[in-house]
Amino acid sequence: MTASIAWQRRRAAANRVWAQFRTDRGGLVGLAVLCVIVLLAVLAPLITNSSGLDVTQATGGILKPPGNGFLLGTDESGRSVLLLLLWGSRVSLLVGLAATLLSVGVGTIVGVLMAHFGGWTQAVLMRVTDFFLILPSLVLAAVLSTVLTPGIGSIIIAIGATAWPTTARLVRSQTLAVESRPYIERSWALGAGHLHVIGKHVLPAVAPLVFANTTLNVANSIITESTLSFLGLGDPNSPSWGEMLHNALQSGAVTARAWWYLLPPGVAIGVVVLAFMMCGRALEAVLNPRLRER
């Protein structure tokens, strides 16, 4: 009975969040754009032929402009730029989402531990967090991606291992605010343990802000992945938008004025990042009471 009441309250809260989110036109536009891009990325194996990614089976000319069956032209190997763009969306979105989940997970754990236990635990974790904050995240990610075995997994670990400190500080401040409330003191007085307080009270209270921060971190993760791939530190066997820009630069597409090779991946990165930012700002305004009052 208690579980049923809890689920009813959660559904009611989710309905309120959705009703408030719908009032933000920018958030709705961003959500619609993301739905279309995710749908195309998921359906790419069904609506396209992956054999066209193999340079040995390329049927187009070198850096040919749009036309003759190639809506966005061809690359330096004669492959369809549109095909690379669709399959690149899968890699870019996968890395962005996975790296964000990793960084948010680590940041949430560290932030909760710092605020909940305090003392020497907070002192040690704060020093570690500050150490990662002062380091240039892009440089550190580049070093990690170079040291680790090349691949998508290495890029995810490199980005996730450098992006968690901001989430940790956000969760720490929110956890301190939650644990200062009277019902937490009542839980301690009734004999609640650390796991009960964290699992039943702290995490549900900080989850909304963490979720809103996650959407914003995805945009940063996609930019970082694209930057690493553009610098030649990505997985050369997996097409991504950053890898397309890297190959375009290396193949002389700039001097050849092959705009159809340079513009699509750049625009795709900008559109996806903007869409995530719009959704994140809308969610932050809904879930953050101070912003909602404004």
Results as ranks from 00 to 15, higher is better:
residue 47 I to Q: 01
residue 47 I to R: 01
residue 48 T to G: 01
residue 49 N to T: 07
residue 49 N to Q: 08
residue 50 S to P: 07
residue 50 S to G: 13
residue 50 S to E: 15
residue 50 S to W: 11
residue 50 S to L: 09
residue 51 S to N: 14
residue 51 S to P: 01
residue 52 G to K: 01
residue 52 G to Q: 05
residue 52 G to W: 03
residue 53 L to I: 12
residue 53 L to Y: 06
residue 54 D to L: 11
residue 54 D to C: 00
residue 54 D to F: 02
residue 55 V to A: 10
residue 55 V to H: 07
residue 55 V to L: 12
residue 56 T to P: 04
residue 56 T to G: 10
residue 56 T to R: 11
residue 57 Q to S: 15
residue 57 Q to D: 15
residue 58 A to Q: 03
residue 58 A to D: 05
residue 59 T to F: 08
residue 59 T to L: 14
residue 59 T to A: 11
residue 59 T to C: 09
residue 60 G to E: 00
residue 61 G to I: 09
residue 61 G to A: 11
residue 61 G to M: 07
residue 61 G to P: 00
residue 61 G to F: 07
residue 61 G to H: 08
residue 63 L to W: 04
residue 63 L to M: 13
residue 63 L to S: 00
residue 63 L to K: 02
residue 63 L to H: 06
residue 63 L to P: 04
residue 63 L to I: 10
residue 64 K to N: 13
residue 64 K to R: 12
residue 64 K to I: 15
residue 64 K to E: 15
residue 64 K to G: 11
residue 65 P to D: 08
residue 65 P to L: 08
residue 65 P to K: 06
residue 66 P to A: 07
residue 67 G to I: 12
residue 67 G to R: 08
residue 67 G to K: 08
residue 67 G to Y: 12
residue 68 N to P: 02
residue 68 N to G: 13
residue 69 G to E: 13
residue 69 G to D: 12
residue 70 F to A: 05
residue 70 F to C: 06
residue 70 F to R: 06
residue 70 F to Q: 01
residue 71 L to M: 14
residue 71 L to R: 11
residue 71 L to W: 14
residue 71 L to K: 11
residue 71 L to F: 10
residue 71 L to Y: 09
residue 72 L to H: 07
residue 72 L to D: 02
residue 72 L to V: 11
residue 73 G to N: 13
residue 73 G to A: 14
residue 73 G to Q: 09
residue 74 T to W: 01
residue 74 T to I: 09
residue 74 T to D: 00
residue 74 T to M: 07
residue 74 T to K: 03
residue 75 D to V: 12
residue 75 D to M: 10
residue 76 E to N: 10
residue 76 E to V: 12
residue 76 E to T: 12
residue 76 E to H: 12
residue 77 S to N: 15
residue 77 S to A: 14
residue 78 G to D: 06
residue 79 R to T: 09
residue 79 R to Q: 10
residue 79 R to H: 09
residue 79 R to V: 12
residue 80 S to Q: 01
residue 80 S to N: 06
residue 80 S to T: 01
residue 80 S to M: 03
residue 81 V to F: 04
residue 81 V to P: 04
residue 81 V to I: 14
residue 82 L to H: 08
residue 82 L to P: 00
residue 83 L to E: 05
residue 83 L to I: 14
residue 83 L to G: 00
residue 83 L to D: 03
residue 84 L to K: 12
residue 84 L to Q: 10
residue 84 L to Y: 03
residue 85 L to F: 09
residue 85 L to H: 02
residue 86 L to N: 04
residue 86 L to S: 06
residue 86 L to H: 05
residue 86 L to C: 07
residue 87 W to M: 09
residue 87 W to N: 13
residue 87 W to H: 15
residue 87 W to F: 15
residue 87 W to G: 07
residue 88 G to M: 00
residue 88 G to H: 03
residue 88 G to A: 03
residue 88 G to P: 05
residue 89 S to E: 04
residue 89 S to G: 15
residue 89 S to D: 04
residue 89 S to H: 05
residue 89 S to N: 06
residue 89 S to I: 03
residue 90 R to P: 05
residue 91 V to P: 02
residue 91 V to H: 01
residue 91 V to R: 00
residue 91 V to G: 01
residue 92 S to A: 10
residue 92 S to L: 02
residue 92 S to M: 04
residue 92 S to F: 00
residue 93 L to E: 06
residue 93 L to G: 02
residue 93 L to H: 00
residue 94 L to P: 07
residue 94 L to A: 13
